[in-house]
Amino acid sequence: MTTEDDKPTTPTASAADAAAPGAPAGGSGTTLSDAVALLPVGEESRTGYERNSFRHWIDEDGDGCDTRREVLLAEAVTKPEQGPRCTLTGGSWVSYYDEVEVTDAKKLDIDHMVPLAEAWDSGASQWTAERREQYANDLGSERSLVAVTAKTNRSKSDKDPAQWLPPAASAQCTYASDWVATKLRWKLTIDTQEKTALEKLAGECEDTVVEYELAP
């Protein structure tokens, strides 16, 4: 995952739950260009951010598999064998950022599509700790969390699409769609440079659509 001091303010319920301006309840088949236009522009601030502000890799359903392993199981091309305490052996995955096949789960990172620090900058600083935990372990959308090679994940770090795109050209339209969908799902803002980069991608990805549901 990306490695990302004023304490964050405690949000009111309305601040935590209010929809971003212009963000509808959900979208199916929205063009990338139209979806980018739904995202409100805001100023980003890293003030008060700490990675442990987002508790992650929890076992939400109590089945012995934490969020990391749940993603690995869901995204496996060849399913790994599952042992005690959700120990995974074998299996294969394709890291879509760089189109690399991986046969050792230890060589994969689970990437937050919108990194934790970027989420903080874009609105999560105003969330409750519980809401940030939900974000960090979001299994409700298949692209909120993705299994990718450690190399590409660490290259990405906490960068937005104005600063980093997947090295595989074939992945970039999908990545833009996934990024925008995640920001809409969690009612996050974008900054001006990010908006410019996403608009450019939308122009290059005319057939790309965005589907999302607001996080509960």
Rank of each mutant, 00 (worst) to 15 (best):
S155V: 01
A171S: 13
K156D: 07
D111K: 06
K151P: 00
A147P: 05
E130H: 06
A124W: 05
E142Q: 12
K151M: 10
R132P: 08
H112I: 02
S177K: 09
D121T: 13
L184I: 00
A119G: 15
R132C: 05
W164Y: 06
K183T: 00
M113N: 13
E133I: 03
S141P: 01
D109T: 01
D138H: 01
S157C: 05
S122M: 09
A136I: 04
R132M: 06
S170Y: 08
Y135T: 02
H112F: 04
S122H: 07
I110E: 11
L145P: 09
E142M: 07
L116T: 02
K106W: 06
M113T: 15
A171M: 06
M113A: 02
T103F: 07
S144M: 11
K106V: 02
Q126C: 11
T128S: 15
A136W: 03
I110K: 02
S157M: 08
R143I: 05
A117F: 07
V100N: 05
Q163D: 14
E142K: 13
S177H: 01
K183V: 02
D160F: 04
L145A: 04
V180A: 10
W127D: 07
P167K: 01
V100L: 11
V102D: 12
P161M: 09
A171D: 11
K106P: 05
Y135N: 01
P161W: 03
T149G: 10
C173N: 10
W179F: 13
V114Y: 02
E101Q: 14
L184H: 04
A124G: 03
V148F: 10
E130K: 11
L145H: 04
K151C: 00
